[in-house]
Every structure is written in structure tokens, then in C-alpha cells.
Amino acid sequence: MLRLPTFQLHEPASLKEACALFAEHGAAAKILAGGTDLLPNLKHEIYDVDHVISLAKLPGITGFEMQGHDLVIGALTPLAQVATNPNIQKHAPALAQAASLVAGPQHRQMGTLGGNVMLDTRCQWINQSYFWREALGFCLKKDGTVCHVVEGGKKCVAAASNDTAPALMTLGASLTFVSATGTREIPIEDLWVADGINNKSARPGEILTEIRLPLRDHTHHGAYGKLRERGSIDFPLLGCAVRIDLDDADCVRDAAVSLVALQARPLLIKGVDALLQGLKLGSTELDQAIEAVAQLAHKKCKPLDNIPGDKDYRRRMVPVYVRRTLRAALDGTGPVHHI
């Protein structure tokens, strides 16, 4: 059997204790939540860590809570609960749909929303055993000096592969990190860094505790589209989340489109709202604008040969999935998934 490396396991009983441990061990420690991302990566010896800080015994960072106009989701809430929560399904359908399509059923029972946000980037040259990576001569992300995706590349381009990230981005979510030195809340857009080695701005010692969604009081439409080979288990070859808010006259008030499984960062497409704003539901203008958004996304998204799946094909699917997901959001038929 492929074995886990040895490590010191910490099981703090309070967030404070967890933060203290993380502050003490910093980069030599990894946070363990659901384990569905961390354990395979540990087995592949992608991290040099001596300490694993398990959040299994922490009370109170699970579940859903309304705080004013915000819905606050505990970071340790299992994805299966996010997918089936009626409030999320109603007010943040893109998130519910994205959560429902993460990996397979067992992963969604174990994996948490916070864990999916903090998912490590993925690449065909890194998510392999130590033996395999050594035979390759390693790569930029770990143990090596060359990139096998971009010839001569000096920056790791492993792909953000978290289904929920684009959904949270379209929803304007913010994230709460707690550390030994205090609490920090950041908009989710600010989390991402264009570096596949670590695509997050969270500092060592910070633990994600809450995901905050501002709920809208006007009509909200959302959907998630996922391209993958199989109907289950697989990471996205392309993920696309959309939000369309309508005003009382059924005209687009605001809209957002975000994609994942491209490069190191999930991408929020700029300029979508300008293309769609003011257009009426069911109008030809809206149809045309949706196509324009699809083409805009196509222009902005350049998948690489990082994750498995032909990059040209994935790029070609960008406008298809953007268009289909926008339509599904308006029609209430999401998610866009081949099954």
C-alpha cells in the first residue's frame, strides 16, 4: 500500500490551541480538515512537513448561520451539506451545484468547504508518487527546477482545481482567517496569487474558519458548469460559475462569471456586468450579450497542459460552458454537467 510519511499529529481541542501550534510550526506543518486533498499529497511526498494539525476535534466551525444579510458557513462544513442545504440552494445555487459536483460522494462527505477553498493546485507533473517525480527529474512545484508545462517556465502554473472557488468568487464571498495574532477577513478574490507552488495569500499560521456570503434581496440566478471526463470522482477539466442578478423589471442588474482549472488562479472575468447590465430576460439583446460574454471568456482564458486533458480542447470548451452555464442559470436548470 502507498503509505503516509511519518509525522507528528496534533489534535488541538480549541481554535486557540490550533493557532498556537500552527504559529509554532509554521511551514513545517499542514492543516488537516477532511483529508481528501492533504492525505494523497502527503502520500505522494509533495510536502516536507513534520507536523500535521488536525482540526477534527475543534468545536463550532461547522454549519450555517445567518448574520444579518450574510450567510456564514463554517469552514469545516462537509461539502455534502453545502450541496444539500436549502438556503444555499436558494440563495447561492452556483455554490450548491459546485459542491455537489466535487469528486465523488464519499469525498463530499469527508471534504469540507474550507478544504476545497484551500485545495492545493494540481498538475499532471506533480500529483504523482515520489518515484514517478524522481524519474521525471522533478518539477518547479517541488524538488525540481524546471517546468514541464511551459518550456523554460520559471513560474509554476499548476492549476487551481477547486470547484467551489469560482462559485464563491461570483458570489462575492469573503473569508475569515484566524491566527495566533488575530483575525483577518479578506474578499476571496484577494486570496489568489498567480503562483502554482502556493496560489494563496494566506500566511503560514492562518487557519480558514468561515466563508461569508452576502445574500442579495433581489432575484438571484446562479449556476455551475463542470467539464470532466467521468460523471463522478474527477477534478474539473474546466469549471465555470455564473451569477446573474435581476431587478424588478427582469433586467440584469449585475452579473459575474468565474472559471477554474485554467492556471494557478481561478479567474473572475472582468467586464461581464457591463455586457449584460440592463438587458431584459428573454430579449434577443440578452442572447447576443451572452454570446459576447462567452467570447470574452474565450479571449481571457488560456488553459495550459498542466492538468490532464488537451489544452486546446479545454480552451475551446470555455465559451461553450460559459454560454451553457449562463443559460442554465437563467433557466434554473443547472448544473451544467454531462450526466
Binding site: G35, L39, A56, H107
Partner: peptide, 27 residues
């Protein structure tokens, strides 16, 4: 499969199917 890809190691944890190969014994 060693790492949560096949489901052969599924057990029920409080009645829910989970992968015992991706769960520490302690958890």
C-alpha cells in the same frame, strides 16, 4: 487504489460513506 480514487475502502462513519484510506485512524 491507495488514495481515495476507487472507493473499495468505504466504511460508514456515523452512517455516512467515507474513505478509510483518507482518514487517519485517530480521526
Amino acid at each position: 487504489c491507495d488514495k481515495g480514487d476507487c472507493g473499495a475502502c468505504t466504511v460508514l462513519v456515523d452512517g455516512k460513506p467515507q474513505l478509510s484510506c483518507l482518514m487517519l485512524g485517530s480521526a
